[in-house]
Design a protein around this nucleic acid. Structure first.
Length: 172
DNA sequence: GGCACGATGTGA
DNA sequence: CACATCGTGCCG
């Protein structure tokens, strides 16, 4: 298992997102190591993407998306659920990958609750953290590509862009 | 300051 | 389909 470094994350989100399928999320909780295979992600790309929070421009919340890839973007939705994202791309090119599923857990809100991820991870450097990393075991997994979930409000073409990537055979 | 609304999940 | 629950963006 190789830890992924900046060169992996500092690329366009449409390259990084599909490659994250089958990779492993490493977490250290209470001094115990855990590995979870990533099974579902979505790409959010630039200020022009009306489903991307960066479409509102640079704010205290979206600021982290304007940094170079490898930082963590976490935010609260519906007052209850933390969404876990990894920033990608170069500095000043706001992009992020929303991690929507790991093996056995479907749904971005359930995922963060299960893993214990919250606002304390906002801005964390996933290439230089003692508690969270992404690792690769070089095993390829075929993927299914679909539209992103829950962003119809963004209108076209954003609602129809095929920017959701799911591990194939992962039921739904 | 006030208000509308979500990259969701659950349960009727 | 209703709704919980609150940070954020936007307007005033």
């Amino acid at each position: 298992m190789i830890k992924l470094e900046y060169d992996f994350f500092i690329r366009d989100v449409l390259e990084v997102a599909p490659e994250l399928i089958g990779k492993y999320l490493f977490l250290k909780k209470d001094n115990v190591d855990h590995l979870y295979m990533i099974t579902e992600v979505e790409a959010y790309r630039g200020e022009e993407d009306l489903a991307c929070h960066a479409s509102k421009g640079r704010t205290s919340r979206t600021e982290i998306m304007y940094t170079r890839g490898g930082h963590i973007y976490v935010y609260l939705i519906y007052g209850m659920y933390w969404m876990f994202n990894i920033v990608t791309g170069k500095e000043d090119d706001p992009q992020a990958v929303l991690i929507r599923g790991i093996e056995g857990i479907k749904g971005p809100g359930k995922l963060t609750k299960y893993l214990g991820l919250d606002g304390s991870y906002y801005g964390e450097d996933i290439c230089n953290s003692s508690r969270i990393e992404i690792r690769d075991n070089n095993i390829f997994h075929p993927i299914t590509i679909t539209q992103r979930i829950g962003i119809e409000y963004a209108g076209e073409p954003w609602a129809s862009n095929l920017w959701r990537y799911v591990i194939r055979n992962d039921p739904k």
